[in-house]
Amino acid sequence: MPRFILSRAAAAGIDPNRLAREAGMPTWLLADDNARVPSEFYPRLWELLEHEVGDQDTTLRMVGGYRVGALGLFDYLISTADTLGEGLAVVGPYVGSVSTNFRMDPGEQTETESTFNLYMINAEGRGRDLSVQSSLGILVSRIRQVTGRPVDPVSVAFRQNAPQRHDAFTEHFGTARVDFGAPVDSMTYRLSDFDLPQVTADPMLAAVLRRYAASMPPPPPHATEWPDRVAAGLEHELREGEPALDQVARRLFTSPRTLQRRLAESGTTWSMEVDRARKRHLEQLDAADARATESQFADPDRE
């Protein structure tokens, strides 16, 4: 995904190597086409590219040049399916083949429409906004290409604040129903669109690719599972000593303030999670001591 940004930068006459260096990407990552790039580089590159071009619509204009195949295995998993619905069905299970920082889940369903919700784990601010724009923008471009038809979504919703103008959004997505300040990033299509055949279908290749993709990293946890992620971080910190908010936040690639906000959105707090973690830690220690005692008395050779 970062290489897609760099390729679009090069097409716009911007030095991709310089952009990568400014983002902090090691040079060896650029030389290895099979390397998995840390997730923080993706939103950072979009931010740098927008600043370089000086246009708030840079991301949408850049994804307008997307062509199926640019994202490798992930694109081919979708494009080789028989119908659009079957192709979209592989997005959730196999998104880990292209990124472990995104998750796409089914949203609200009606008798005539279906919504996909997009969740991004490790990103905040403008970089997150641009990353979501790119992901949904690429998805709609891919749908038009694999069906060979000008299929437009019914509506698109973004968590980001409304920009000063959004003509680029309505132009790219093909719908006037573009909402901002939404509780979740999402896109809605007509159910009838899912029956459309894909001009890129290849059932035999699809079967091979899915077997291969099954060995790739799984999708990240849902955005509302922050307490579970914090629990894992606290477990590690408690083994080392007293847990600290900034240490756990750093382990989860976020800021202390954002971490506290995520926990509040999940109906809990930092102090509550620390108390729960301490209780679990003590229970684990007690259980370990009990097993050690049982083992000692069960061994006849032990004095």
Rank of each mutant, 00 (worst) to 15 (best):
Y119K: 08
Y119L: 12
M120A: 05
I121E: 13
A123I: 12
E124T: 07
E124Y: 08
G125P: 11
G125S: 13
G125C: 12
R126C: 06
G127S: 04
R128S: 03
R128L: 07
D129H: 10
L130A: 00
L130P: 00
S131G: 15
S131Y: 12
S131E: 15
V132E: 07
V132R: 07
S134T: 02
S134H: 07
S135T: 09
S135Y: 09
S135Q: 13
L136K: 14
L136Q: 13
L136C: 13
L136S: 12
L136D: 10
G137H: 07
I138D: 00
V140I: 10
S141P: 07
R142P: 11
R142N: 11
R142Y: 13
R142D: 14
I143A: 06
I143G: 05
Q145C: 04
V146Y: 04
T147K: 14
G148P: 10
R149A: 15
P150Q: 08
V151L: 14
V151D: 04
V151N: 05
D152L: 12
D152N: 13
P153Q: 04
P153N: 01
V154N: 00
S155C: 06
V156C: 15
A157S: 10
R159V: 04
Q160V: 06
N161F: 09
A162H: 14
A162Q: 15
A162E: 15
P163L: 15
R165F: 09
R165V: 06
H166E: 05
D167H: 11
D167E: 15
F169L: 03
F169Q: 00
F169T: 02
T170L: 02
E171N: 06
E171A: 05
H172E: 05
H172W: 09
F173M: 01
F173C: 01
G174A: 00
G174T: 00
T175R: 00
T175M: 02
R177A: 15
D179Q: 15
F180D: 09
F180N: 10
F180L: 13
G181S: 10
G181R: 06
A182L: 02
A182Q: 04
A182C: 03
A182E: 06
D185E: 08
D185P: 03
S186P: 08
M187G: 11
T188R: 02
